[in-house]
Design a binder for these strands. Sequence first.
DNA 1: AGATAAACGGAACAGCCTTCCATTTTATAC
DNA 2: GTATAAAATGGAAGGCTGTTCCGTTTATCT
Lengths: 219, 219
Amino acid sequence: MFRLSTVDIVNRKTQKKGRDTQPPGSTVRRLRADAQRNLDVLLQSAMAVFATSGVDAPVRQIAERAGVGVGTVYRHFPQRSDLIVAVFRREVDACADAAAFLATEHEPGEALTRWMQRYVDFISAKRGLAAALHSGDPAYDTLPAYFQKRLRPALQTLLDAAVKAGQVRSGVKPDDLLHAVPSLCAPAHDGDPARARRMLALLVDGLRYGAKPSIRTRS
Amino acid sequence: MFRLSTVDIVNRKTQKKGRDTQPPGSTVRRLRADAQRNLDVLLQSAMAVFATSGVDAPVRQIAERAGVGVGTVYRHFPQRSDLIVAVFRREVDACADAAAFLATEHEPGEALTRWMQRYVDFISAKRGLAAALHSGDPAYDTLPAYFQKRLRPALQTLLDAAVKAGQVRSGVKPDDLLHAVPSLCAPAHDGDPARARRMLALLVDGLRYGAKPSIRTRS
DNA sequence: AGATAAACGGAACAGCCTTCCATTTTATAC
DNA sequence: GTATAAAATGGAAGGCTGTTCCGTTTATCT
């Protein structure tokens, strides 16, 4: 009952970038070109299908959209949940990476605000997945930790910069924000899509309260 | 695509008790004896199976345990979710009814404490169902309202009595408690089953703080 | 007791996830 | 370039589901 798969073998090292210096003695084998291509298109298709039809969408539908047989899907992702997890991690990565980009493009306070907005969009789109997360299926057990591991440092960096620039008050814990946002967005369940954004705006304003400007100003 | 079923036709009026005075002109028809019997045993079986195998347990399994064909299940509950909802409502009812009983058996403060315990047990057991609730399936949309409608008055009564007896401080909203408890129990996800109870004890102690004894005592 | 309608059971259908393996494609060695 | 071995593929098939359908059984009423 033990079965290898690309999920296990390939790590994010073998991506498109760089000459791919492999740690010696590593057991990972490069994916064949077609396999890599299929894996990419599969993840994209899955992301698109999940976004429109929810995470309960049939595997066949994803395979078809990718122009691939179901066998190929299962070669890369032994379980349906593995595909879901992979898509989710990829989106978490994208969200985390956005932090670094935003930090270079905007001043600290603005970067933080925009990232929070990005985070809200991310959370809001994953409503169906949240249900799967709490379904008790052990396949998803590792996701929350990954969530935390990737997102917290990203937010931490933005937060530190904003505090140092005097645009946000100090003493705010990134974990608190990370948790507060989903709670705030939860009531938006009812169908009001813009509500989440309004709630977030409120929260961000709260962050600014009591900021200690680096340039002197009346408190 | 519209289909009648006992779920729609029968309300809780046609139970075992009483001579069953029917409002005239009502369209409800009494269930045949065997149908009523099967319905009861079905609900019991479903409750048991859901408790052990979760709400995702196959309908066939429930039917088998009830000694009944699947056709019978679907005659009473056109959709699988209808069965889940019925079981859930029944358990909500039981929890709500427990309040009145506890109030007659114990003094107000104790009754409140015991009911909260009861409520925790109820919530803790329904972990799998909570996931279904947030799954976005419109079949469950009416459940939260029912939840509130049955449980709030029950708690309200207990609370009022406890306040009047000076065993709990005033100003506590029943809705707050109803919501606080699940939040407190959520972290118990990790496997510690006794934790929920400890958290609850804490909460109840908080209620006592600042109580205004009816018998004079040092504040 | 006989008639009638309600209720029943479980085979059959459709859709899903997952497995399996004959076939095709890629990478490597010559 | 060709031959060979390994990796990857596609889709039919197996074993689960929820749900429908209808011939048969059973309760109820006269």
